[in-house]
């Protein structure tokens, strides 16, 4: 069997488009996921039982279902129930955002809980409202502490975006898959994208390590 990675080079425009799709899906899901995850984390830590258990239910639900099922649900079941046809791309964006929010939530919640009681008291004693204390004292420290975890989760997310190929979206894997079947170059294509996923994920995780040394709070 011949392996010819040159085949990926021939299809580079199409593959690059796929990569771009994967990256923008990752970026979108990260932004929305971290924003919604922050809101969910604050809700989970709320003293209001209704609020905290609603948030906990959301988080536990999505953390207990395989992502691929959620992708199917949104793509197939939701249009059946609501009658609204969203298409593969839109439903992929929405699915990843709401799914990742649950994972980011747990990281952010741990970050908030890692802030010592003394800091919280110090903020309150200065006259901050609980919301201001969250905004100016707790979250900035929490995010510095958990940045490596958030970025690691994002690397996992980047790899997980490859699952959208099951609904026919043309992400990096989807693009490679389509070329592979068109040109009958399965081995070359799958090996090629594996190298691309590896290179991106590995250099990102190296960068995370470097970054952590730079942003850690001096104590």
């Amino acid at each position: 069997m011949d392996i010819n990675l040159g085949n990926i080079w021939h299809a580079r425009d199409f593959i690059l488009e796929g990569l771009q799709y994967s990256l923008s899906l990752t970026g979108f899901a990260m932004l929305i996921g971290i924003t919604a995850g922050t809101v969910l984390a604050i809700a989970r830590l709320s003293s209001n039982r209704m609020v905290s258990s609603a948030a906990a239910t959301y988080v536990n639900l999505f953390r207990s279902i395989p992502l691929v099922l959620v992708i199917f649900w949104f793509y197939i079941l939701l249009p059946l129930i609501t009658g609204i046809q969203m298409g593969a791309d839109k439903s992929a964006y929405i699915t990843f955002a709401i799914f990742e929010a649950a994972y980011y939530c747990e990281i952010i919640r741990a970050g908030i809980q890692s802030i010592p009681k003394g800091q919280i008291n110090a903020g309150l004693a200065m006259g901050f409202t609980p919301a201001q204390n969250m905004r100016y004292v707790i979250l900035p420290q929490a995010f510095r502490n958990i940045l490596p975890l958030l970025l690691t989760q994002t690397i996992v997310l980047f790899q997980d975006t490859s699952l959208v190929y099951v609904v026919g979206a043309t992400d990096l894997l989807g693009a490679a898959d389509k070329v592979a079947h068109r040109d009958n170059t399965l081995v070359d294509m799958y090996l090629g994208v594996a190298i691309i996923y590896f290179t991106i994920s590995f250099s990102l995780s190296k960068a995370v390590k470097q970054l952590h040394g730079k942003i850690a709070i001096i104590r």
Binding site: A122, G127, Y136, V137, Q141
Partner: peptide, 20 residues
């Protein structure tokens, strides 16, 4: 309470400056 607290200064055993 926030308003009341803002008018009373407090100093803690472990300083509690905001490290960030």
């Amino acid at each position: 309470l926030p308003k009341l607290r803002s008018r009373v200064g407090m100093v803690f055993q472990h300083f509690e400056l905001f490290p960030h």
